[in-house]
Simulated assay, not measured.
Amino acid sequence: MKISSAFAHRTIRAAVLIAFVFFIVRISQSDALSYYVAPRMELWVKGLAFGLYVLAMHQLYLAVRDVLSNKKTAAITCTCSSHSHDQWKPSVIIMYAALIVPLVLAFFIPDAVLGSQMAAKKGLNLTPSGILLHSNSGDAAPNLIPNHKLQLDSGPSFPFNEYTRPYAKQAADMYNQPLISINDDIYIESLTSMDLYQEQFIGKKVQISGYVYRLDSMNKNQFAVGRFAMRCCVADSVPLAILVGTDTPEQWQNDMYVVVLGTIEKRNFDGKSVLAIDAKSIDTQKVPTNPYVYGNPYFGD
């Protein structure tokens, strides 16, 4: 391989790395980074951009050094005959294409929030407590059986085990509220607590805001209100929602951001027992700055 070929490869690598850096900088400056990663990952992504920039500068340095010194690189001086040094073989071209094509798409496709179409493809999670129990399914079965309970002075009890203790406390706190308000900072934990103790919350008043989602299996008077819950990045996001029943479903189109006020009841949906809201009022609301919700890092402390 000649110096010109080595220069071309290193220049391409540097260009690809710099393009990744520019993309991260662009979405950071436009406040679109939250569309891709959770807040706790943003610092890592920005640090990655710095690391990629250093690598890009190193590739440019090597490219210029080879041209100025007019010498072959150490890799080229290999004297073995067991393999080819043809650096433009198909596997290398495919490798470049695998990096360049996503970059081109990332720059030309507008940043967008995951919406109802993706929610329908992923499937709405109307029973979030199932995730809680499934995440501990590898432990011994007796650990999943409630062996304690939190008894309210004038109200129901909330059985719990070592895994569900914080959810029992959250459920008890929510039950004591005249109007249960599902806030963004504890959105996931609130819906999980309500689902875990469905019977206790029947008849309680609740207010929740979120995007309108629909599934083909819903009847004409139903839709779901919820948000995409993100753990680390957009790839692991899950549409977390609660079923809503209303007499005016045609007014509320998919992906509208609404606030629903109503009474909690229990319904059977797709063979599962799920909570639903018998809506008393539905209003549009300004879309939040951050469209996704995240696990509360202080929950259970």
Rank of each mutant, 00 (worst) to 15 (best):
E189R: 09
Y163I: 07
A172S: 12
Q198R: 10
P159A: 06
Q198E: 11
L179V: 11
P156Q: 09
H148M: 15
I145E: 14
F201W: 03
Y167S: 06
Y163T: 09
Q200C: 04
P142G: 09
Q198P: 01
L191K: 05
P156C: 06
N183C: 08
N161H: 11
A141K: 15
T192N: 07
S157F: 01
D184Y: 02
I182G: 00
L196C: 09
A168M: 10
S137W: 09
M174H: 11
L196F: 01
P178N: 11
I186H: 06
N161A: 04
H148S: 15
S154W: 11
L144R: 07
Y187H: 03
L196S: 02
D173L: 15
M174T: 00
G138Y: 04
A171L: 01
D195F: 04
Q198G: 13
A168T: 07
N147P: 14
Y187R: 03
D139C: 11
L150M: 03
L152S: 06
Y163P: 06
E189S: 10
S193C: 09
K169Y: 08
D184A: 12
L144D: 01
H148D: 15
M174A: 15
H148E: 15
Y163E: 04
I202V: 15
N136D: 05
F158G: 00
Y197I: 08
P146E: 08
S137F: 11
